[in-house]
Amino acid sequence: MVNVPAAALDSLNGLAFGDAFGDRWFGILRRNGPAALDARTLPPEPLWRWSDDTAQALVLVRELAEGGGTIDEDRLALRFAASYAEDTHRGYGASMHDVLRRIGAGEPWREVVAGQFGGLGSWGNGAAMRAAPLGAWHAADLGTAAEEAARQGAVSHHHPEAVTGAVAVALAAALATRSRGGSAPTRPDFLQAVAERLPDSDVRSGVRIAARMPERTSVRHAAEVLGSGYRMSGPDTVPFALWCAAGHLDDLHEGLWSTVAGRGDIDTTCAVAGGVIAARTGVSALPPAWHTAREPLPPVVSEQEPERERVFGPSV
């Protein structure tokens, strides 16, 4: 067991804020339409519960801590299944209910995951939604960040686009972490730095398109061009979420409001953007009301009890 790097803790916390904040908006938009979003009215619920995005990111950080920064795929698969069994009501997608139940019942995870969707595997955004803290952890070595992100992604998502989405998010978080204490890179430079390290894929094409968008591009237009997760796939989630993050690398609060305005799979786009931005900024600048409302995170590793209380608040 090793200490969790501060940037990884910051990224995990930012991911949880984005996830919990974004998840509240599904109900608000159904009830009230976009008026509350346009007015930036805070979600009224007294507790902003986080979803499977955060639940799986917690599992991933614990796996990194136990493995000294390295993923053991067999152990991680069992960790995901065990976390799911402890709380199945965190908004898991339909295919993940099947995958995690079968892994928990003892079926080999490689066979289960590879057999999804007629043998193509899932190309959903679940591998990407949890990857930012891993990138922050391995910020000193972008090659390792990409490799470990791909390995953790393959545990649940067999399709190469889903895995590439996870790599893109991890690289973005690593680059954000590397910029701590200095000037933030421009949005085009940041996105191009991510894209140039990705394999040929729809995800890479989307990130490249995002990098070329004019500075005046509106959030709504970016969401229409890039996709904002309506298909819940890696290619139509990651480029938009990274575009939002790249434009707000010094302002997590504004970054999350911008991301949620794109609608779509709001908890996941906000989780990705929050995890990337917070890898650079931390979360202390968020309004006190947000810190009060968001569901606290449970322990990450037991050795860090004092630090955990400072960063996350009391355990649930």
Rank of each mutant, 00 (worst) to 15 (best):
E111M: 02
G91P: 04
A146W: 00
A172H: 05
R187E: 11
A176H: 02
A36L: 13
V238N: 02
R310T: 09
F80N: 04
S183D: 13
G33T: 10
R151F: 09
M96E: 08
G227A: 08
E224P: 04
E196H: 12
M96H: 07
R212N: 13
R308H: 14
L64V: 06
G67L: 10
V163D: 00
A184V: 14
P299E: 12
V4R: 00
S11C: 07
I103A: 00
E73F: 01
A222D: 01
G227S: 10
T70V: 15
V2N: 11
A172L: 08
L12R: 03
A81H: 02
P235F: 00
S258E: 08
L252E: 04
V155E: 02
A271K: 02
V112A: 02
P235W: 02
D200E: 15
F190P: 00
R178M: 11
A223I: 01
A245W: 07
R31P: 05
A65F: 06
V283P: 01
R110N: 05
D236G: 08
L64W: 13
A170G: 09
A149F: 05
C244N: 06
L37K: 11
R178D: 11
A82M: 06
G181W: 04
H159K: 12
L134G: 07
G313T: 06
L78T: 15
P43D: 06
T144G: 03
P5I: 12
V300C: 02
W109G: 01
R231L: 15
L134S: 05
R30Y: 13
V112N: 00
V4C: 05
Y84I: 06
D10P: 00
R308F: 03
A77M: 07
D23Y: 12
P5A: 12
V59W: 08
A176K: 01
H158Q: 13
L76N: 03
A261H: 15
F17V: 09
A127D: 00
A77H: 01
R110K: 14
A16Q: 03
H157P: 09
P185L: 10
N3A: 14
P185M: 10
G22F: 12
L29C: 08
S315F: 08
M213Y: 01
R24V: 11
I28R: 02
R231I: 04
V276F: 10
N32C: 13
G229N: 09
L297V: 06
L256Q: 04
A172P: 08
V276W: 07
R79F: 05
V316K: 12
L249D: 05
L171S: 03
D265F: 01
T41S: 13
G262K: 07
N13P: 00
P160W: 12
G115S: 11
R30A: 15
T268V: 13
G106V: 07
D265E: 12
Q192W: 12
R49N: 13
T70L: 14
S95K: 07
T237F: 03
Q152T: 05
R79V: 07
R101Q: 12
R197Y: 03
G124H: 03
A65V: 11
T269K: 02
